[in-house]
């Protein structure tokens, strides 16, 4: 089951300060939508409302047309899985145990996993390439391995929507690319916060740009990632070029203050 994710007029206040103001965005069925913006622009806050760690002051989050607001935490966790930041825990569970916790919103009390659910967890571990680590302690894994274990847990949750908060943090290039390819191929509706704009451009069908808690642009990467936007929102000078292999927009940043041949502008 894969459905559409809709964030409608979301406003969040923390300690009396407006963090996010009337943000609306849409992730079509099975698409990957990237949420980008400078530090402190409210990306994580929007995400936290989607996985219900935060209650918005106003606005609704809908999954497949159903409002998450009145649902119990368990009900919404069956629809939305999340990969949060700093979420690896401190107890030495085995990898298989961590992945099995993805089933908890579907299970009552301590009831054990069914054979189907065990197979589902095994498949999830296989999908992200951690099956061989199943009996290892999560605390003994590298950062990249841990991240993949948590993605397996999210997949085992069988959600309709997957949200991820900077999932490529601490990953080397190959694992970053692998992870984003996995998201694209998962068939799920994905909302992902990314810092690396080039990866975002390559991986996402749509990009939404947040600045100071408000949505300032959205559309395909080619529509959104312009030199003007990079200057105005991110405060950097850069050229946007087409990738020679697949034609997605890629950004070339420059550190120099004065660029040759730019005087005419």
């Amino acid at each position: 089951m894969t459905v559409e994710l809709e964030v409608d007029g979301l406003s969040v206040e923390l300690a009396g300060r407006a963090i996010v103001e009337r943000v609306s965005l849409r992730a079509g069925t099975g698409t990957v939508v990237g949420l980008v913006g400078p530090n402190g622009s409210g990306k994580s806050t929007v995400l936290r409302c989607v996985y219900r760690a935060l209650r918005p002051r106003a606005g609704v989050v809908r999954v497949g047309g159903a409002d998450l607001g009145p649902m119990s935490a368990r009900e919404s966790a069956r629809l939305v899985a999340a990969l949060t930041q700093n979420s690896s825990g401190e107890l030495d569970f085995t990898v298989a145990e961590v992945v099995a916790l993805g089933r908890s919103p579907h299970l009552r009390g301590n009831s054990p996993l069914s054979a189907r659910e065990v197979a589902l967890c095994d498949r999830a571990m296989g999908q992200v390439g951690v099956a061989h680590l199943a009996h290892r302690s999560v605390l003994s894994l590298s950062g990249g391995e841990r991240q993949r274990v948590l993605i397996a847990r999210a997949l085992a949750q069988e959600p309709a929507v997957l949200v991820l908060d900077e999932p490529t943090n601490h990953l080397d290039v190959r694992h970053q690319v692998d992870l984003l390819r996995l998201l694209r191929n998962s068939g799920l509706t994905v909302l992902v916060v990314l810092h690396d704009l080039n990866l975002a451009a390559a991986a996402c069908d749509q990009l939404c740009v947040l600045s100071h808690g408000a949505l300032v642009a959205s559309g395909t990467p080619a529509e959104v990632l312009t030199e003007d936007l990079l200057r105005d929102v991110f405060g950097v000078r850069a050229s946007v070029v087409e990738h020679p292999l697949d034609g997605v927009p890629q950004i070339l940043y420059t550190l120099t203050d004065h660029v040759e041949g730019e005087d005419a502008r």
Binding site: A53, A77, V80, A82, Q85, S87, G89, S104, P105
Partner: peptide, 8 residues
């Protein structure tokens, strides 16, 4: 945060 995403 994780707990919220797992329905707790």
């Amino acid at each position: 945060e994780s707990a919220a995403s797992l329905g707790v």
